[in-house]
């Protein structure tokens, strides 16, 4: 075991440390999304990178998609398999008494925490653009599977939020406040 004793552990969406996993057109920087890393470093929080469900399952050349398009039994099983690994790692930290948060990506069909994407009209010829991206309240598929896996392990009180850089009217300062509040929030809320 490590000797370090961080104030908490943040399990972050894969793409926040590796923008190469994004769909074509979605990478905002060469590799590491700095605002989140800066904040976690300032607070002394440990960083854990979750896998990217879409990259592993659909590959580098996937089109943009909404949750409905990925919501198959096979993709859910893939997400659950990945979520079991994340939940297993979370359990290690919880058992040590360390605070844990999950940080996803709002708007993502898989990693959304409060906002995902949904439309019954997406499908067939890939002719949808930025302006059409249909955001809706709700979790992405991986987030749903992770919540279910954590609940089965009796770890249902892990707090979660999402980075919002994919949303319209993104406000980096507001996001920093939101993530700061997440880190400071008492456990179990």
């Amino acid at each position: 075991m490590t000797d370090s004793n961080p104030p908490g552990v943040a399990f972050v969406a894969h793409c926040l440390l590796n923008q190469n996993s994004k769909t074509d057109g979605g990478a905002r920087c060469p590799g590491i999304y700095s605002p989140l890393v800066d904040l976690l470093r300032e607070r002394g929080w440990r960083i854990e990178q979750m896998p990217c469900p879409e990259h592993a399952f659909l590959g580098m050349h996937r089109f943009w998609l909404v949750k409905d398009q990925a919501d198959t039994l096979a993709f859910r099983r893939h997400c659950r398999r990945q979520a079991k690994v994340v939940a297993g790692a979370i359990a290690v930290h919880v058992e040590r008494g360390t605070d844990v948060v999950v940080i996803g990506v709002e708007g993502s069909p898989s990693m959304g925490v409060r906002i995902t994407s949904s439309s019954a009209d997406w499908g067939g010829r890939p002719d949808k653009g930025d302006d059409d991206y249909p955001l809706v309240p709700g979790r992405g598929i991986f987030s749903e599977e992770l919540v279910a896996e954590l609940a089965e392990r009796g770890l249902g009180d892990v707090r979660a939020s999402g980075i919002e850089h994919q949303l319209p009217d993104y406000d980096e300062a507001a996001e920093r406040e939101q993530i700061s509040a997440l880190l400071e929030q008492p456990r179990g809320r």
Binding site: N18, Q19, N20, K22, G25, A27, R28, C29, P30, G31
Partner: peptide, 8 residues
């Protein structure tokens, strides 16, 4: 419009 570095 994509800023990825293609390096991991």
């Amino acid at each position: 419009g994509d800023a990825r570095g293609f390096r991991i």
